[in-house]
Simulated scan of single mutants.
Amino acid sequence: MVYTRTESRCDRDALVTTPGPRLVPAPRLEPPTESRTSTVQPIPKAVPARPPIDHGPFPMWSENGDIREQTWHLLANILEVLDHRRTARQLRNHLSRPMIASLETRAKTTRGQRQLHTLHICRPRPDVIEACATVWVREPARPPRAVAIAARLEHRQRRWLCTAFRSM
Rank of each mutant, 00 (worst) to 15 (best):
C10F: 12
P52C: 02
C162N: 07
S35R: 11
T87D: 07
S35C: 13
R50K: 08
H94V: 12
T109I: 15
T37L: 11
A107N: 09
G20K: 10
R5L: 14
R68D: 07
Y3F: 10
T109F: 14
R142E: 14
T37H: 02
L95K: 00
Q113H: 14
R156C: 04
V2T: 11
R68A: 11
T39I: 09
M1F: 08
E7K: 15
L95R: 00
R152P: 03
T18H: 12
Q70H: 14
R5Y: 12
T134M: 04
E69R: 12
T87W: 03
R12K: 14
R9W: 11
T17F: 15
H55P: 04
P126D: 13
R97I: 04
D83M: 00
D54P: 07
V24G: 11
W136N: 08
N64F: 14
S8V: 13
P124N: 10
I53L: 09
L74K: 04
E154K: 03
A107D: 00
A164H: 09
H73K: 09
V137S: 08
L119C: 02
H155I: 00
S102R: 08
I43Q: 09
V135L: 04
S35G: 10
R152C: 08
V40A: 11
L91V: 02
P42H: 02
G65V: 03
W136F: 06
P98F: 05
H155E: 01
L23Y: 15
R138G: 07
S102V: 04
Q90C: 05
E104W: 02
M168P: 13
F165N: 02
H155Y: 07
W61D: 15
L15T: 15
P124H: 04
E139C: 11
R50M: 14
P25T: 09
L82T: 00
D83P: 00
W72K: 09
A101K: 06
R114K: 10
A141E: 13
R68Y: 07
R28L: 12
S38Q: 04
S35Y: 04
V24Q: 07
A164M: 12
C122L: 15
P59H: 05
N64G: 15
S167M: 14
I53K: 08
T17G: 13
P42I: 07
R152G: 01
P59C: 07
T71H: 11
R97C: 00
I149F: 04
T134H: 03
H120E: 09
R92Q: 01
Q70C: 08
R36K: 14
W61P: 14
R142C: 08
R106P: 00
E7D: 15
P19C: 11
E69A: 12
G65R: 01
V147S: 09
R114T: 03
P44Q: 03
R106D: 10
V2Y: 09
T134A: 04
P19G: 11
P25I: 07
P98H: 13
N93V: 06
L103F: 00
T118V: 05
E154F: 02
W61V: 10
R159G: 07
A107G: 05
A14Y: 05
L119N: 02
L29G: 08
V137T: 09
